[in-house]
Amino acid sequence: MSQIDYFTEEHSVESVNRRMGEDIDPRLRQVIGSLVKHLHGFVKEVELTQAEWELAIDFLTSTGQMCDDKRQEFILLSDTLGVSMLVDAIQHRRPAGATENTVFGPFHVDGAPELPMGASISLDGKGEPCRYQGRVLDLEGHPIEGARIDVWSDNSDGFYDIQQPGQQPEWNNRGVFVTAADGYYEFIGIKPVSYPIPDDGPVGKLLESLGRHPWRPAHMHFLLTHPDYERIVTHTFVAGDTYLTSDAVFGVKDSLIVDYVPVNTGMVKWQTRFDFVMAPK
């Protein structure tokens, strides 16, 4: 009989992990084995009390109860603990010069209308109109034809259209554009504003307990796809925003901060330029 046949504090990890079957998926064995190792290590390091364990169970239960088809509180928890960004960073290590990824966010909607280059995505007429422009390039600086650019942002009040059904027009501040041979893109949106992530649930209470705020800096979302290149999920962030260094979901990267230049061209009040560089598959 082995000393790890029965559970003890000293050999807790071994006792749990050795119960896994012989013929299970190797990756599952690796992931769960490491999870048990680090989870038990955490419990031992902080000497978790029974009351704290029960509080954790209540927190996770409440987090699950907040989830529905429009809200995913567990993703919000992952975002605010930096896990979403860490997974994204590991999975999207790109060559030097390629545009960096950032967190996808919960407000993307499939099926946004494809619009002619230069069209406006602002349907409610609110906010400060802004011209977005740039090029989509490969690593050698050649333009990419046929790159599909899916864009979306909040409105001037800090809400996405799906957060305010019936108040905002459907597809407000959303659109899809496809590059021609020159790789150029251009559209009219609005200068985005900072907004708080939903903080009326368990994650919001956790942030408050940690002395953290729920705010995200102003940004425009971009999703770039092309059959021959890696998908890019990213934002461009407004330079000078108050929350750039304290983004609640850790999404800001220095290379994604861009200047918004004031202009006076008809109705357009701002202009910003960003060139995307796609890495080959």
Rank of each mutant, 00 (worst) to 15 (best):
G127S: 00
D5M: 14
N264R: 13
P116F: 00
H11N: 14
P217F: 13
R273V: 11
K205W: 06
E140S: 07
K70G: 15
G118V: 03
V258I: 14
E208I: 10
D259S: 12
M117S: 09
S120R: 10
V203I: 04
E114W: 04
V16P: 03
N155L: 00
C67F: 05
H221Y: 06
L28Y: 03
H38T: 10
T245Q: 14
I188L: 11
G127C: 04
P106D: 07
Y243W: 05
S122V: 07
D58H: 11
A96Y: 01
A180Q: 15
W270R: 01
G183A: 00
V109N: 12
Y229I: 02
G240Q: 06
I149V: 15
R231A: 13
L223C: 07
D241I: 02
E186H: 01
S246V: 06
E208C: 08
Q65D: 12
V46W: 04
V261E: 09
L55P: 01
P280H: 13
P143Q: 15
E47I: 08
R29Q: 15
F177Y: 09
D275I: 02
V13T: 15
R18C: 09
D69Q: 05
P217G: 11
Q167H: 10
E208Q: 15
G118C: 09
M20T: 04
G64P: 08
Y195A: 08
S156E: 13
H92T: 15
D69L: 12
T225I: 11
L81S: 07
G175D: 11
L60G: 06
D161Q: 02
E128Y: 01
V268I: 12
S62R: 12
Y229W: 01
K269C: 13
V13A: 12
T225F: 14
L210M: 11
A51I: 10
M267W: 04
L224A: 10
K44M: 03
L76S: 05
P196H: 13
V249A: 15
D124K: 03
N172Y: 05
H221G: 05
G201M: 02
S84C: 04
G41L: 03
M267I: 09
S12C: 06
E73I: 08
F187G: 01
F237G: 05
T179G: 12
P26R: 11
Y195T: 00
W53E: 12
K191W: 00
R94T: 10
Y184K: 08
P227E: 10
A96W: 01
P198V: 06
V151F: 00
W53I: 03
V136Q: 03
V87A: 15
T80N: 03
P113L: 01
P95D: 05
T102K: 08
D68L: 08
N155D: 11
E100Q: 08
S153M: 13
L206T: 06
Q91K: 10
F237L: 12
G41Q: 01
D200F: 14
A112E: 05
G125T: 05
Y6Q: 14
L60T: 09
F159V: 11
F59E: 06
P106T: 02
S2L: 08
F274R: 07
V263H: 01
E208L: 10
L28G: 04
Q168A: 13
V46N: 04
Q164A: 14
C67A: 09
P165F: 05
F276S: 01
V261T: 09
K70N: 14
E145I: 04
